[in-house]
Design a protein around this nucleic acid. Sequence first.
DNA 1: AAAATAAGTTTGATATACCTAACTATCGTT
DNA 2: AACGATAGTTAGGTATATCAAACTTATTTT
Lengths: 166, 166
Amino acid sequence: MANQNNFSENLEDYLEIILDLQRTNKVARSKDIAERMGIQRGSVTSMLKNLSTKGLIDYEPYGYVTLTDQGETIAEEIERRHGIIKDFLSRVLMVDDEKADGIACRMEHVVDRQTIDRLVNFIHFLDTCPKMGKDWLQAYVTFCKDGKPDKKTCDTCMEQTLSSEK
Amino acid sequence: MANQNNFSENLEDYLEIILDLQRTNKVARSKDIAERMGIQRGSVTSMLKNLSTKGLIDYEPYGYVTLTDQGETIAEEIERRHGIIKDFLSRVLMVDDEKADGIACRMEHVVDRQTIDRLVNFIHFLDTCPKMGKDWLQAYVTFCKDGKPDKKTCDTCMEQTLSSEK
DNA sequence: AAAATAAGTTTGATATACCTAACTATCGTT
DNA sequence: AACGATAGTTAGGTATATCAAACTTATTTT
């Protein structure tokens, strides 16, 4: 409904990058977009025309590039998804930062609004609900040494926890 | 290391579908692959040649299709990722089954072995660690009525939990 | 302001993954 | 064994997203 998107992952990536460049440099330049996308300058030009035709950016040949309102809305949505997924991957699953960023960069195109909102709630729940214990993360770290369940530590922990519960 | 994959998401989808057809029908037929992929029969033929060239399937024109060992290994890995992601989406984030399946179908190509293993550990932790409380899922359901945090219920729950903790 | 450099564009080509429609092989009936 | 239906293939075409290299415009530097 809100974001009846239907644009390719690729277009979404462009929008996300343009949003970021616009923020840091006021305006997005073709050369920087090419660099961020890891492609040639020539390829950017055609994509800018494409984005412009779709009403997602304002673009004149040899001019600067800025997002239209519609483009900005989409870019911000994608950016939001990116941040949330990256947070989950790095803070909850403890995937290292660079990898988390790379995976988030691809997952952000795959999840919809509802799913991402549920992920937000879930993370919020983990962070705040006292039933989980404030130290759920620590408990999980104990549970998963180096990413693999550390059976010995875990068994001891379970015993302690269970016996202290009466 | 193990799965230095480098095949496109598309190829991975074909392999996954062929694996499933092979299981249910002993052998995969072009027509069924087309149906599952939602594409025309003609498109399947070229892809079968492609997969065959890459050594992922055994294929003779007009013959049946079976996965090679390498193809099977990849297909099984993808299938595993699919199941795990779907489980997380539907059971933890409570995304409805059909949607969870669709998202998993795309996410499965995006995560690597390490990340999926960590997700497995995390889900396992949620399911088994007594520190979380056996009813963490119930707590979460209370927390998120209809996917949105139900502040009132949640506050009550927090009070109770906190006061019963001493 | 002219020359040099940098940025942006154009053109023609490639790869992937599709399509449609015509054609061919195979299978199941009778 | 012949016929019709079903399955599979081929050929030519489309869309997307990329490339390299030649070219044009804009910006610096002197």
